[in-house]
Write a protein that binds this DNA or RNA. Structure first.
Lengths: 150, 150
DNA sequence: CTTAATCCCGACTATTTCAGTTAAAATTGT
DNA sequence: ACAATTTTAACTGAAATAGTCGGGATTAAG
């Protein structure tokens, strides 16, 4: 039941963009260095986020990435779904329909997985990047390396 | 954020044992057939559950497995932890301590992962095998193939 | 116009996990 | 003795993870 580095790095990168929202495009390299993520790998993740419509990109010199909407409108659930797939412990309870497992709707374990799915989605869909931003700022994070205070 | 077949099969097998609790040891083959799980694979899972103290085994003819405690005392969280590892989206928020990530305790994303972890653990640790059993019986499940009613 | 910065794209690799399979050995009721 | 069991160890193919590598396209600035 882990979130992979895709989701972890994705949320960190998006929070970085949120902290610099409104300052024009931020280069991938800048984000990768601040967040200590391989820039080639982060490139793949940003491509996924761009295709999902969560960030927009500006090519060429002085280009970079910026959030496609304000931090207050962007929930963590969107980011995780784009990078990790459905927020769901089992395919048979995917929110978008997903695959049936052949067991009936009243299947005792399916009800359990549904409750688990809902509790996970509730947390992730009720947290916006602005929530994370406010907390990061409250902890005294500066512009750079916002979470590296031991 | 999936549960693998280990967790899925494990819960199904344990629920099967719960439905036959008090009837003496149930053979692996019986459970595997009722639950449509490869018996060799289920063998590995039962070995893990035995080492975790969740089931006891009786060797030899007429042997098999039985729950180590009553269905009402066995929560799903124990089964998942035994088979899938910590219920936690990230190592840095494992309940048993786990690994630090170097980011501070106030790290904005860590707080998020903690809330996610707690919401997952709450669901799994508040559901007992007896809860699942009652629901399975309420749905009209017989002794066999208790969840295969379309 | 050239150049440097930057995003974009496809292929490649090493490691680990998943989901089993296979084969043999130990235990025990009848 | 024999058959039904659990127990243990080794093996395998496929997929996912977590990257790396090399080049191509676009654009701002000098």
């Amino acid at each position: 039941m882990r979130i992979s580095t895709k989701g972890e790095y994705g949320v960190r990168a998006m929070l970085d963009l949120a902290l610099h929202y409104g300052q024009g495009p931020i280069s991938l390299k800048t984000v990768a260095e601040r967040q200590d993520i391989s820039d080639h790998y982060l490139e793949q993740l940003m491509a996924t986020l761009r295709k999902a419509g969560l960030v927009s990109s500006v090519r060429g010199a002085q280009g970079g990435y910026e959030l496609a909407k304000s931090p207050g409108e962007m929930v963590v659930g969107e980011i995780i779904r784009a990078l990790e797939g459905p927020i769901s412990p089992m395919p048979c309870v995917d929110q978008d329909g997903g695959q049936s497992c052949g067991h009936g709707e009243g299947c005792a374990t399916r009800q359990l997985w549904k409750r688990l799915r809902d509790s996970m989605a509730d947390v992730l869909d009720s947290t916006t990047l602005d929530d994370l931003k406010q907390q990061a700022l409250a902890m005294g994070a500066g512009d750079d390396s916002f979470m590296y205070h031991i």
